[in-house]
């Protein structure tokens, strides 16, 4: 946050209770949404802004009921438009900490345009992208992130569409922050959201979310207890990329891109592994990390990219400040009387 436009901090330390809503949470029991809500309840008090300065914006879908479940200012929008609405909120009042709850249908399909443009502009908001690879609220149709071949209510023979990888889309749209987490790990989710809050610019946190009703176990290969150590890698800034049950595997930058290697085999040591640099301006490695998919690679978790660029809302304020200091038109009377006028 920039000096003048910071979000005001709370004078007293806040707790979870400060954000508890009086509304009944209506997600299905076992839905990943509950875990995401728990992370937000953890992270908002930790961020420390005044509770009135949080604003939650959403579109339509199961994820988008989120604003009703946290006690902040909230706006439940229309399908696909959360990112556009939130842009207006943040530009109008840069002193707010704006959070967007959206899903793979909301932001990847009907709202795809707003999603890429908010990222391109680098508006200082935090996007929580609930990716359950299905349309839940409309009861089980495939989404733009459903893997090819997914059998759903609108693809009885399997989808014939190539899915989006949200991370690739974010980086393609010149994203400055992308992180990934799974709904089964509240601790990591909370850490990642805290990082997102600290970042100046559009932060996208993709949460691999389980829809127990319409797409149960969609992420099991990544999240299940016995597979997760081998199928996930937790990226930590400044540390070598190591994963596996016994921390025996690593990621190396080879001639043709990233390679999974085993430490100790073929003379490979920790020294040979890639060291994560989330702050790098160049998105090259970040893109490769975001694209890693099973079965050849583990799926990257944690903050993949967090690069520093000017934000849209900061520049708006800068231009206004500049114009106010330099323009001869200080009020509307000046404006009305500017240029060619004459007395009758």
């Amino acid at each position: 946050m920039q000096e003048n436009f910071t979000v005001e901090r709370s004078r007293n330390p806040l707790t979870k209770n400060d954000f508890v809503s009086d509304q009944m949470v209506k997600w299905c029991p076992g839905c990943g949404g509950h875990a995401i809500l728990a992370s937000v309840a953890n992270v908002f008090p930790k961020i420390g802004y005044k509770k009135e300065n949080f604003c939650m914006v959403s579109g339509i879908g199961c994820s988008s009921r989120f604003p009703y479940y946290v006690n902040t200012y909230g706006f439940h929008g229309i399908h696909g438009r959360a990112n556009a609405i939130a842009t207006g909120v943040k530009v109008a009042n840069p002193h707010l900490s704006v959070w967007i709850a959206t899903g793979d249908g909301d932001s990847m399909a009907i709202g795809g345009n707003h999603f890429i443009h908010i990222i391109r502009r680098n508006v200082d908001v935090n996007i929580m992208l609930f990716n359950n690879q299905i349309y839940g609220l409309t009861k089980g149709q495939y989404s733009p992130t459903s893997p090819m071949g997914s059998v759903t209510k609108t693809s009885p023979q399997g989808t014939i569409e190539h899915p989006f990888n949200p991370g690739e889309l974010v980086l393609g749209a010149q994203g400055t922050f992308f992180a990934r987490a799974v709904d089964t790990n509240v601790k990591i989710m909370t850490e990642v959201m805290f990082e997102a809050a600290k970042h100046d610019g559009t932060s996208v946190v993709e949460i691999l979310e389980n829809c127990v009703i319409y797409n149960d176990n969609a992420h099991t290969a990544i999240t299940s207890k016995d597979l997760r150590e081998d199928n996930q890698i937790h990226l930590k800034n400044g540390e070598p990329m190591i994963f596996g049950k016994n921390n025996e595997k690593g990621i190396r930058l080879g001639q043709m891109g990233l390679e999974v290697v085993v430490i100790g085999e073929n003379g490979i040591t920790e020294e040979d592994l890639l060291v994560h640099d989330q702050y790098s301006q160049d998105p090259g490695i970040h893109l490769m990390l975001a694209k890693m998919t099973l079965p050849y690679y583990p799926v990257a978790m944690g903050v993949i990219r967090s690069a520093m660029f000017s934000t849209y809302d900061d520049l708006v304020e800068e231009q206004i400040k500049y114009a106010k200091a330099n323009s001869t038109i200080k009020n509307v009377d000046d404006l009305l009387n500017s240029g060619d006028t004459w007395e009758i």
């Binding site: 914006v57 939130a86 207006g88 943040k90």
Partner: peptide, 8 residues
Amino acid sequence: CSAIGASF
């Protein structure tokens, strides 16, 4: 939609 957000 941005205008609606700004109005809010």
